[in-house]
């Protein structure tokens, strides 16, 4: 079932001014429970606008955003409650840390929810363990931490609100391969244990191939194609059309397939490419 739905949503920045710009044009997307959905697109494709519409930070110019079937801006509904249920992790969230200690920074969200102190502490510890923040760091100032650690504290802060849906805008930007894997694996573990809906905004086809279940490719404020990772990679031409880079391994296997040497459309991992090429070499 669709947990969160964009229904014919358009969004116009600075309407009725010379800077008017349509960032989203009649977009419909369904985000399913217990799935990791990657939204990919070039800068300016509208993907970050989608992120901000999902928790009511922006209000669509037309169309509706539905959470469990309910319009989040319906009369009488409380948007701040929506923000507790849809957690948004911005790009470079480490710049938003501000508390005196790591524990207090992670506890900021749940404290605003007016939970009791024991519950707040439980949530902080649980979120920290998923995000990969060592409890030894709890009493430190967030500003003493490394960039990667700060990023994880910021993510833990959103997880500690235990939202039904978590939206992360480029959570691995600027991290080294190890930092990237740690963050994405933490997000996967979180999804598995909370059955939550996870939405990742990214411009890396390569990362999304590894970590997402479903992919939505955006271009110029529209959805170009969507489906499971396997389905989307069957449409390499469309991905290229969106201006995104396809993984190196996909470029190689597509070319070999075109030349009739292997049967390998839609390959996006080295494992699969190796298997297909080996198979073809043995049959030769």
């Amino acid at each position: 079932m669709s947990k969160l739905t964009l229904e014919n949503v358009s969004y116009v920045y600075s309407p009725d001014t010379p800077f008017e710009k349509e960032a989203l044009s009649n977009v419909s997307i369904e985000f399913k429970e217990n799935r990791i959905t990657g939204i990919i697109g070039h800068t300016g494709s509208g993907k970050s606008t989608v992120a901000q519409l999902l928790n009511g930070l922006l209000k669509s110019t037309s169309g509706r955003v539905l959470l469990d079937g309910q319009d989040i801006f319906e009369k009488g509904s409380d948007v701040s409650k929506v923000r507790f249920r849809v957690g948004l992790v911005f790009q470079y969230p480490e710049y938003q840390l501000f508390e005196e200690t790591v524990w207090r920074d992670i506890a900021f969200g749940p404290s605003n929810m007016k939970l009791d102190p024991n519950e707040i502490d439980r949530r902080v510890r649980s979120a920290a363990s998923f995000a990969g923040v060592d409890e030894e760091l709890f009493e430190k100032s967030p500003f003493e931490l490394s960039g990667g650690q700060k990023r994880r504290v910021a993510i833990a802060g959103i997880m500690a609100m235990e939202p039904d849906i978590i939206v992360l805008d480029e959570p691995a930007a600027g991290l080294d391969p190890r930092g990237r894997d740690e963050i994405f694996n933490g997000i996967k573990k979180w999804r598995d244990s909370h059955n939550s809906t996870v939405i990742l905004i990214s411009h890396s086809m390569e990362d999304m191939a590894l970590y997402a279940d479903d992919i939505i490719v955006m271009k110029d404020g529209k959805v170009l194609t969507s489906g499971t990772v396997d389905q989307v990679f069957q449409r390499v031409d469309v991905i290229k059309q969106s201006g995104l880079d396809i993984p190196q391994i996909t470029a190689v296997t597509e070319e070999l397939t075109k030349r009739g040497l292997i049967d390998g459309n839609g390959i996006y991992t080295v494992d699969k490419a190796y298997e297909k090429i080996l198979e073809a070499l043995k049959e030769r």
Binding site: I249, V252, A273, Y274
Partner: peptide, 9 residues
């Protein structure tokens, strides 16, 4: 990725 592929082959 291509380095990894060639390495395995």
């Amino acid at each position: 990725q291509v380095t990894d592929l060639a390495y395995r082959l």
